[in-house]
Design a protein around this nucleic acid. Structure first.
Length: 1103
RNA sequence: GCUCAGAUGGUGGAACUGGUAGACACGCAGGACUUAAAAUCCUGUUCCCGUAAACGGAGUGCGGGUUCGAUUCCCGCUCUGAGUACCA
């Protein structure tokens, strides 16, 4: 029979599925090998043509390793939480779980069709409760951990608490928030539990904090940095703005150093490692405190120095000015009255600039002088303080010491504003630009003069440390990762809120199931979709089970605490107003806020907070202090103010007021008096809120006051990368309902030996996965420091579009005539995308074109050589370019084996390339030719049992060696070529030898498994044994040659080949060559000056 | 701007540690079979000169260097792609 790929492929795909052929053994004496693909997000569009490329490569490798005697783990699953299913749900009302299920079915069908050797018994889906139970569990472990810098690992939070109880905060070297309390053991033990908890939150590896987030209004969610491209969302392309929100974060920065160091131990593509290094962005330098010069400044300051971070502390004597970010907290207080207009104007301009403007405008020098000075800590020299938007508030301390002689940006700034430029190194040349050299000796640098870079740096740091003005410091660019999304289709965070503080739910209550909601949209009050879930609240063990309160309680922590004192009816009416107020503060409010925010005074202050029926400008809920600034709407209304004060007192709040002028004139002294007031106040009497005797009874309390009726759950869900940050462990023990994977399974499978996927995950998935892996190692759950030992990036598949050229008539209108590509220069035409599926090797099928769209039914063509040739361009693969190629079509037409081999044949795996089916015929022909080796002219199976000839053995062993070498270095394209060569040779030899062909079947089976299984059984082997057959052993004896056709070159140019026995030594070869008549002809009677002979390689003569 | 990767026939690409550049495949041209087409098979196919052929010259983005010999190593440049963006 001729090669019937359809029947064969169907038959074997069924066989593999029914017999669990590729099920990995949990216990084995064989060495393990773990081959993993980045699992797909099951989108509605189905498997995209780029996906199979990596999957095929990994499948070939997995199959090859099985033949080589490894116990291979090669699983597949779905990253099935995600935005598209939710967007679709919003549009159609269909539950995302339903569409996800459908999409997975499509994916599975498509995957099966390509004949992958996945162990489907281990399939995972991140959206399945069995799976996300463990994602939530890991979240809980992170919550219960802090990072001990001394031990360089994560430790249990109970250790930290024990330390606080016994020793206070002294002796703790942790990765934590900036503003932590310091306390003795007694002080700690005296703190109330909520205060302790809020302090501990500053240490936990996952924690809440108000962060500036990338808010995408169109998607209604927060995006990670790597989900934002040029100010637009990566998915959907919607505008993204900066917004402050209370968010869950992951303290990935704790692992910055280990994430960096680990890169040196893993076999990943260098560009990928480089991307991670840049992302982590380690810089070694020093932090230096520049004391503020008080002589020029009268008003009180919160600090009396400005701290900068520098990587060139050795240039400190070259500092001629200091630049701080326009958003820097000290700007207002450093600005002298004379400079105020300038500074205000500059800040106003900066605020107006969009992100894009700032980028486009990178070369313009701008800034403004504050009028204040700092002193050089080493020689007391007065240094001007400037603000400029080239200094970023978010990096380092938001302040730089400017060294114009060594830094080009500072140089330009100094030139522009006529600031001094002091050379500090003897060989520096700074006439036209800065010279950042580290060579030479220091000058103008007092005690450093004459030293070189290394000695100088050490001397400066020693001096700074001695006088307490600075120390060596390492800075990272990487920020903590935000871990919340205001979305429905994701893992619920296993947290409830009590007293406005987050608490974990009991482990027994995992998984915290995703609740049903009526709509997949934010609530009317702007809460995430989970706010719609009715009666969704947490009841801890043993609590009296009152029916949960409706509506108001299922609020997030944030809204929960904001509403702590709010009249529920009134709240709904004014909450938008309050938010607007927050977003558009008055000048005085904003200025004061910079001193009150982030617990700078040691107290958490909220602004525009609703209390009863009022919106307080600022409030400390802890101390019950309301701070009011007189806005224009009630300056003249003393009565109203008094009424407010009375009501607020009623709720247990004290009120202090400041005028706008007071704040604008001297914000520091205002801040100072607030602090003094706060210090003097006792903790707020909260009974006044929940107490029944007050009007406040109608005020909606927090969950904490409900005494077990039900606490509000966190309403945001986890981001897309949560489930994918540990999934490779789940495959090791996918059915386990006691643990995320058993210690035995983890001890056996350890880590992923080969991971294949796209480089687009460089700073997302791959970084987060390494982080979680390290954390799980720290808590003793896994053994390896790195999850993915070797990683290969498959190249991206680009689209390849075809064009037809519509003829334009004299009046400039398009006609229904189309000009072949080669002739378009002779006509006036306009190009038009045409469906690539009706074009083959750039020749368009004219009939199909006419059928393609009704308006082309009567189209006419101007052909070249009777054909319509299309134009070609490489662009993104997209429906609107009609260049999408579906792997299904290829599999239907040529079969999975051809598809597999063709995708490999296209070129090196890592290279990006346009998808192009030109040439697929050649691969199909090859398989048919292979099939024919086993058959006679009448297509009857026919192999002989005679001894293989020397030539046959040589062909076979050449391919054995070639495939081994190629597969081991992931050069799949070259081995496909070699297979073709081998089959061509064997065809020429008319080989139908059983021994040879059977080995060929084994070697080829990892590339083209279906045809090989069929031939394997035709050869008389039991079905299903091919996948575990031993790979043929290479024997070099078959490749040894007696002769070698030496290339004979003259002056490096090859002239002829000459057969010389390999047994001859160099001297003899030279003689043989020179004695040859043809060689003499080339030499033209001249004697060569020199003869180079490389044995077995080449002979070269110099004349 | 910086970092990284890359540039080889009409096309995808091969040449692994410096040693016969263009393997393998597509496409194209010619031929065989066929009434014809498809399929299949055979031959040729880097370019230029010349041509029946032998033979000669050039040639791996551009310019230079090291070497008996460079697609491969070094220096400078051009272009393409990716990442990053005032990171102190």
């Amino acid at each position: 029979m001729d090669y019937q790929f359809k029947d064969i492929e169907q038959k074997w795909q069924q066989f593999w599925a029914q017999n669990n052929t590729f099920k990995a053994e949990d216990k084995s004496t064989k060495p393990k090998y773990y081959v993993l693909d980045m699992f797909p997000y099951p989108s509605g569009a189905g498997l995209h043509v780029g996906h199979p490329l990596g999957y095929i490569a990994s499948d070939i490798f997995a199959r090859y390793k099985r033949l080589k005697g490894f116990n291979v783990l090669h699983p597949m699953g779905y990253d099935s939480f995600g935005l598209p299913a939710e967007q679709y749900a919003i549009q159609t009302g269909q539950h995302p779980a339903v569409t996800t299920e459908d999409n997975i079915a499509t994916y599975r069908r498509q995957l099966d069709q390509i004949g992958f050797s996945f162990d489907w018994s281990r399939e995972v889906r991140t959206s399945s409760p069995d799976y996300y139970k463990w994602t939530q569990w890991i979240f809980m472990q992170l919550f219960n951990s802090w990072y001990n810098k001394d031990a360089a690992k994560a430790e249990s939070i109970t250790n930290l608490v024990a330390h606080f109880e016994q020793n206070g905060s002294a002796g703790i070297n942790a990765v934590c928030d900036e503003e932590i309390l310091s306390f003795t053991a007694d002080e700690w033990n005296a703190l109330s539990n909520p205060v302790q908890q809020s302090e501990l939150l500053k240490y936990r590896l996952t924690y809440l904090r108000e962060s500036t987030v990338n808010w995408c209004p169109a998607l209604g969610t927060v995006l990670a940095n790597d989900e934002v491209k040029d100010g637009f969302s990566e998915r959907g392309g919607y505008p993204v703005e900066q917004k402050k929100m209370m968010q869950w974060s992951m303290r990935i920065t704790a692992y910055a150093e280990r994430l960096l160091q680990g890169l040196d131990t893993i076999d990943w593509p260098e560009p990928l490692k480089e991307m991670q290094r840049n992302w982590i962005g380690k810089s070694t330098g020093a932090s230096v405190r520049f004391p503020i010069d008080k002589t020029t400044h009268l008003s009180q300051l919160i600090t009396n120095y400005i701290e900068v971070f520098t990587t060139r502390v050795d240039t400190i004597f070259g500092v001629t000015f200091l630049v701080i970010a326009p958003e820097h907290e000290l700007v207002a207080s450093l600005t002298t009255p004379e400079q105020k207009a300038d500074i205000d104007a500059y800040i106003a301009v900066t605020k107006k600039k969009s992100e894009l403007d700032r980028m486009a405008d990178a070369k313009t020098v701008s800034g403004a002088f504050t009028g204040s000075f700092v002193l050089n800590p080493l020689n007391g020299e007065k240094i001007q303080i400037w603000i400029a938007d080239y200094v970023l508030a978010g990096y380092g301390t938001g302040a730089v010491m400017a060294v114009p002689s060594g830094d080009q940006r500072d140089y330009l700034f100094a030139k522009h504003f006529n600031l001094p430029i002091v050379p500090i190194i003897d060989i520096q040349s700074i006439e036209t630009e800065a010279d950042p050299t580290k060579e030479g000796k220091y000058i103008n640098s007092e005690f450093m003069n004459g030293l070189d870079y290394k000695a100088g740096t050490a001397a400066v740091i020693a001096k700074l440390e001695e006088i307490g003005a600075g120390k060596a410091k390492i800075n990272f660019r990487m920020r903590d990762a935000i871990f919340g999304r205001q979305r429905y289709w994701g893992e619920p965070v296993p947290v409830y809120f009590k007293d406005g503080l987050p608490h974990l739910i009991e482990e027994d209550h995992l998984p915290l199931l995703l609740p049903e909601v009526d709509k997949y949209l934010p609530t009317e009050s702007g809460e995430p979709p989970l706010g719609r879930a009715e009666g969704w609240s947490y009841k801890p063990e043993g609590a009296p089970s009152k029916s949960p309160p409706v509506g108001e309680t299922s609020q997030s922590h944030k809204a929960g605490s904001y509403r702590e004192t709010a009249d529920p009816v009134y709240y709904e009416q004014v909450k938008d107003f309050s938010r607007d107020n927050r977003n558009q503060p008055t000048e005085a409010e904003e200025m004061l806020w910079q001193f009150l925010r982030s617990e700078k005074l040691g107290y958490k202050i909220r602004r525009q907070h609703i209390i009863g029926q009022f919106i307080a400008d600022f409030v400390s809920l802890q101390k019950g202090l309301v701070i009011e600034l007189d806005g224009h709407h009630h300056t003249s209304n003393k009565e109203a103010d008094d009424a407010r004060t009375e009501v607020l007192n009623h709720f247990g709040f004290e009120v202090i007021r400041f005028s706008n002028d007071e704040v604008l004139k001297d914000v520091q002294s205002v801040a100072l008096s607030i602090k003094l007031k706060l210090d003097s106040l006792p903790e707020r009497d909260k009974t006044k809120i929940s107490g029944e005797e007050t009007d406040a009874a109608k005020v909606s309390p927090t969950g904490g006051d409900l005494e077990g009726a039900g606490y509000a759950y966190e309403l945001s869900t986890m981001p897309g990368w949560a489930g994918s940050s540990w999934y490779w462990f789940r495959y090791m023990d996918a059915q386990n309902d006691k643990e995320f994977a058993s210690p035995e399974a983890i001890a056996y499978w350890k880590d992923v030996d080969l991971y294949i996927g796209g480089s687009e995950h460089a700073t997302g998935h791959l970084l987060y996965s390494r982080f979680w892996n390290k954390f799980l190692k720290d808590i003793g759950k896994v053994g390896e420091e790195e999850p993915f030992k070797k990683l290969i990036n498959q190249g991206m598949i680009q689209g390849r579009s075809n064009f037809v050229y519509r003829l334009i008539d004299e009046e400039g209108r398009g006609t229904n005539t189309f000009v072949s590509h080669g002739l378009i220069k002779e006509y006036k035409t306009s190009p038009l995308h045409v469906d690539v599926n009706i074009v083959e090797n750039e020749v368009m099928n004219i009939n199909k074109f006419k059928e393609w769209r009704p308006e082309f039914a009567d189209a006419e063509f101007i052909l070249e050589n009777g054909k319509y040739i299309c134009g070609v361009e490489v662009e993104k693969m997209s429906k609107r370019y009609y260049n999408v190629v579906n792997p299904d079509d290829i599999a239907q037409r040529y079969g999975a084996d051809t598809l597999r081999m063709y995708e490999m044949f296209l070129g090196p795996l890592e290279q990006s390339k346009p998808w192009n089916t030109n040439g697929i015929e050649g691969v199909f022909k090859f398989l048919r030719k292979f099939w024919r080796l086993f058959h006679n002219d009448a297509w009857e199976f026919n192999v002989s049992g005679v001894e293989p000839s020397k030539a046959e053995l040589k062909s076979l062993h050449k391919i054995i060696r070639k495939v081994e070498e190629d597969v081991e270095r992931f050069s799949f394209n070259t081995s496909v070529s070699s297979f073709m060569i081998a089959v061509n040779e064997l065809t020429d030899l008319k080989c139908n030898n059983r021994a040879i062909l059977q080995d060929m079947v084994i070697i080829l089976s990892s590339y083209a498994p279906h045809i090989c299984e069929e031939l394997w059984t035709l050869l008389g082997n039991p079905a299903g044994t091919l996948s575990y057959a031993p790979f043929p052993k290479f024997n070099s004896a078959y490749l040894i040659e007696d002769d070698f056709a030496y290339p004979i070159s003259i002056n490096g140019k090859m002239k002829m080949n000459l057969n010389i026995p390999l047994s001859l030594e160099i001297k003899e070869i030279e003689e043989t060559v020179l004695a040859n008549a043809d060689v003499q002809k080339y030499l033209d009677g001249k004697a060569p000056k020199k003869v180079i002979v490389v044995k077995g390689r080449i002979v070269n003569m110099v004349v």
